[in-house]
Write a protein that binds this DNA or RNA. Sequence first.
DNA 1: TATAGTTGTGTAAACGCTTACACGGTAAAC
DNA 2: GTTTACCGTGTAAGCGTTTACACAACTATA
Lengths: 349, 349
Amino acid sequence: MAVKHRVSRRSRSRSVGISDVAAAAGVSTASVSRFMHDPMRVSPKLRDRVEAAIKELNYIPHRAGRALASRQSLIVGAIVPTLENAIFSRQVMTFQQNLRDAGYTLLLATSEYDPELEFRQARVMLEHGVDALMLVGQKRGSEFYEMLERASIPFITTWIYSKNSIHPCCGFSHETAMKRVVDYVVELGHRNIGVVTGFANVNDRVAARLKGIRKALKEHGLELMRDKIAYSEYTFDAGGEALARLLEKGERPTAIVCGNDILAAGVLTEARKRNIKVPEELSVMGFGDLDIAAQLDPPLSTVRTPKAEIGEAAATYLLNSLAGRKTESRIEVDIKFCWRDSFGRASKK
Amino acid sequence: MAVKHRVSRRSRSRSVGISDVAAAAGVSTASVSRFMHDPMRVSPKLRDRVEAAIKELNYIPHRAGRALASRQSLIVGAIVPTLENAIFSRQVMTFQQNLRDAGYTLLLATSEYDPELEFRQARVMLEHGVDALMLVGQKRGSEFYEMLERASIPFITTWIYSKNSIHPCCGFSHETAMKRVVDYVVELGHRNIGVVTGFANVNDRVAARLKGIRKALKEHGLELMRDKIAYSEYTFDAGGEALARLLEKGERPTAIVCGNDILAAGVLTEARKRNIKVPEELSVMGFGDLDIAAQLDPPLSTVRTPKAEIGEAAATYLLNSLAGRKTESRIEVDIKFCWRDSFGRASKK
DNA sequence: TATAGTTGTGTAAACGCTTACACGGTAAAC
DNA sequence: GTTTACCGTGTAAGCGTTTACACAACTATA
């Protein structure tokens, strides 16, 4: 004969729940739930009553409850190295917009190029029950992919493409891109080429670009000497310093190929400081095509990468997977070579 | 005599839950829960068994369950207008890092400067049960703030500051900042000043800056004529076009004050295109101090805003509130005026 | 008129956690 | 040797949803 009486056991105030709405409208919670998902599934009479009750109570459904019961959170995760690089912030923005239009919300984390941190963040995302996950690059330990496997959620790796990639991917071949750049650079008469790049050990895209450079040079009977490579952080100043280091050693290159536009801009500034004429004495090539590239003086030659397209394609792939639609899991996007004034023929000595 | 037997009613496979771990370790779910939160609260023997079971089963706790039971999601939301503007991406990045270090995860949305969209996104965030929320600016309908009030979660508005702000805020006074800029501009001899700015109707910061400009001019007996203002989208090209419009009308200004660095960069490019010498014939002032400002030619004068600091302070405020610590809810950050080569004395005719 | 669908609704179990409360066992205090 | 306190653990209710199932009230069909 135990009379169950509800005691507020917590200090925190109970919020308005579906059962309150149901009570107020004089219907069952099931009906309210059905109304929330598709108002047309309930009778007009009931519809009005529920609608009124919801308004009256300022009811806001709680998705944690839904997530638990329906086993989907309507949250999608993304982990990118940083938002300071515009290529990623652009990608994330587009990604988010596409998710939102499909009713999903974005859970975002940055890895700061730290694999361990990336792993921890991915775990947290799984704890939050993300329905899908977007990542950057593919280089990570097997335990990472095993974890994703166990969670059995769709995921995609971005800024990377290979037609026989094991994992879903969306991007382009950095190796091929850079090879084509260097092919053309050599064609323009450059033989002494310097490289300013990010650190290859933490980043598979950097490594792939270097590989492309080496490959192109080799085909032309050239070689990339160790002292022609300057590794650098992704900042303007570091880019400038990298050029400085390159200039200290041996004969001055006639062309500098950079890992991204930030570095290239730094190189440009440093060259100006040193009164080295670009492109007459030194040609400079960027990578990525940030919006600023065309605003620099001289306008920077670079490789245009479709940041927004990658974000959108990644979202589309994941949404398709979630909806059970079959889609291509290896998506190649187009890049475009933008030859602007910062790059010219090799100066004849 | 109804024997309850568990039937898998769903196609989706049940994931490993706390009760599985409890069963495997031969303890109660309560103990597992206690272990998860503070391993030292359970005996060593139990600790080992639970630990083993967790590893064995690859148990990943499900935060939706926790959120429901404990009434906190460990998620914090942020809504910014866009990530394309580096000031916001920088802010968001720092915000996220600080949250992460405190065990929270970031739910991110963009409003695209659309109040209605911002409202919808905020609602979704509340549905997701965010524990706190970061916003940009203060201009929004009362129903927005009422909704937050009802949810009774801490929130903060950023990029805005006033010592008698109703809402918690973190930023600086755009009005004062711009007034000081223009005070100095006038001091440098400029009388004919053009303004290139974003659209004021959607954005309280833009409006405040314009107010500051007007105030400064008025104090010096000057007035901002309508045909000296060019409204523009936040892109390089639009900034250039805005300058073009300004130049079409009346006497050419000796100085252009811009609402942000993107616009200023566009102005710089357009001036170069037109062979207008900066700063000899035309001085240009930006706002915000993006990293690129110093890389432009000539280096852009601008107002340095502490993007990262705002993100961090916002996170700190919210985390303090969540922890029940008292903190200042109106946070003013410092700005700095960077006078570089793009700005000089007014040319004497 | 009897039968088979169809439609709309309610009931109640489940989702994976947390936590108030109860309880037994050991240690400390008397 | 009793009393008191504390500590570690288990029990079970509850957090706010969804959804399988049952069932009643219709409508269409034979």
